[in-house]
Amino acid sequence: MNLYRYASPSTFYPLAGRLAPWFFALAFILAVIGLYISFFVAPTDFQQGEGYRIIFIHVPAAWMSMFIYIVMAFWSAIGLAWNTRLSFIMARALAPTGAMFTFIALWTGAFWGKPMWGAWWVWDARLTSELILFFLYVGVMALQAAIDDPRRSDRAGALLNLVGVINVPIIYFSVKWWNTLHQGSSVSLTRAPSMAHIMLWGMLIMALAAWMYAIAVAFVRARSMLLERERQASWVRELPEGKA
């Protein structure tokens, strides 16, 4: 199998078009299963009551927010190294989804925090890192939006993305350090007492659903970006939607 073939926009475009609905369907099915487990199968937590169920959204969203940033950095690195246009487009297509998951993680974190900690926001190390990750996403998107020339915009965004990904562990470490220095909250999001297997399953399935959703959305977004950028190219003109 020649992988390079799939790096060509003219092959990627129809392939992504065919695959996107499947990923959407998978995302939907997995989300239904995951939500069923999290609301009806998983037992009520004896300490946290029903409110803990928000972690079935919160934890997968937090995982995704970090994964997507790393995946973006991966595409950025490939794009800068081999100057492949599709990699930049993939990195760009993922950014809004990543930012959305970061936002969801923060939002649900606040909802979880209110009953558990009695405050909407606590400067917990994880929440704070997540907030900074959100700023990093916004920075990359703002930079890309501010540059009109697509080539420069792609490459500048990719470079910033790479700088960010080197910094994320340092930021995370420093925030943890800061948190211990200031004797922050003693409750931690992940120190849920002996997580039941079924809870872990629920979270994993939800995370998979989020993955499928992210891939589907990235495909759709990448397709529309390709159409817009390559409208001069012959393969676009031969498409039924290119003839209009």
């Binding site: 009109d148 020339d149 697509p150 080539r151 950028r229 390559e230 409208r231 001069q232």
Partner: peptide, 10 residues
């Protein structure tokens, strides 16, 4: 064989 693109224009 130089070619140059500006924006989307060749």
């Amino acid at each position: 064989n130089l070619s140059c693109e500006r924006g989307e224009r060749l």
